[in-house]
Design a protein around this nucleic acid. Structure first.
Ligand SMILES: [Mn+2]
Ligand SMILES: [Mn+2]
Ligand SMILES: [Zn+2]
Ligand SMILES: [Zn+2]
Lengths: 154, 154
DNA sequence: CATATAATTGATAATAAATATCAATAGATA
DNA sequence: TATCTATTGATATTTATTATCAATTATATG
């Protein structure tokens, strides 16, 4: 048989996304499925261009517009987290589509996902001080990753 | 005499900025001084267009390019904090030019500056978990401000 | 399987904020 | 006041994203 239950974490993640897609009048084209696979499997927060290049390895006729449209679809379904940057170098997390803190290297642009416990505390203090009711957040810490720290020590 | 020591907080803040400007071959034009005044006095994180409109009240011939160039100058001097957003609706804090958390209303776009004590803790945990050496951060919490919460309860 | 429907694709045009360009203007200094 | 050059203002350029639309193709149905 061709279909089977998901076993690896990324198969699991893809299955979650496909379940949401099935809900509406969405169609499963090869290009779209390839993009979903890339996003579900990615741990390194790829850019639109990263995704575009990778999907073109398998489907060389794919348009960049299709990548944008698939990402827009996933955003609507809350199945991808967009890390937008004002210089246009946007990055995407299809692995963890909910808000979480990021460590961003200003030299090599590597973005990491640490498990952080003190976010709730900060959020609670923000709420108390401002009276806002928060629905999401964006927590970015910028600096040098361990590797770039070594390289900059010459 | 015309010059006097700064007494109000915003005069104090303007004096800080002017001190940095004096250092190099910078010139004090009326337009530039007006923009500096607006940014030093502002508590509400104005946009480029907000600043542009306000400065044109006093100097109607001012170009938007001059606003951009003055902001670029202040960024170089680390005397303004730029809150860049991927949709291009950038906002500026000339009052507190260092990284700090913001509460952002998704409805009326009001941005607040609460005094938060638990940032260091979060930063420390990030550092321990990732090994990054951070130099700045961006901490945004999005939701409804108290006023917009009232209005949305109909 | 053949057919109908409409969602999707791919190519391209349009959009818009930020930046670059450059001749004209006007601070700063002596 | 004259000189020098930083700055201005108008405009062109850049570039990521969005919009457009005819052609294609996934899907359901008989
Ligand atoms: Mn992430
Ligand atoms: Mn602020
Ligand atoms: Zn790095
Ligand atoms: Zn509000």
């Amino acid at each position: 048989m061709k279909n089977h239950h998901p076993v690896t974490p990324k198969e699991e993640r893809l299955a979650q996304i496909l379940a949401k897609i099935k809900g509406r009048d969405f169609r499963l084209t090869p290009q779209r499925l390839a993009i979903l696979n890339i996003l579900a499997a990615s741990e390194d927060h790829p850019s639109v261009d990263d995704i575009y290049k990778e999907v073109r390895n398998r489907f060389p006729t794919t348009s960049i517009a299709t990548v944008y449209k698939t990402i827009a679809l996933l955003k609507e379904l809350n199945e991808v987290l967009e890390l937008g940057f004002p210089d246009g170098s946007n990055r995407y997390d299809g692995h963890r589509p909910y808000p979480h803190p990021h460590a961003i290297c200003t030299r090599c642009r590597k973005i990491m996902d640490p498990e952080i416990s003190s976010v709730d505390e900060l959020s609670e203090e923000m709420k108390k001080k401002t009276g806002y009711s928060f629905s999401f957040h964006r927590l970015d810490f910028f600096g040098l990753c361990p590797e770039c720290q070594k390289n900059s020590r010459k």
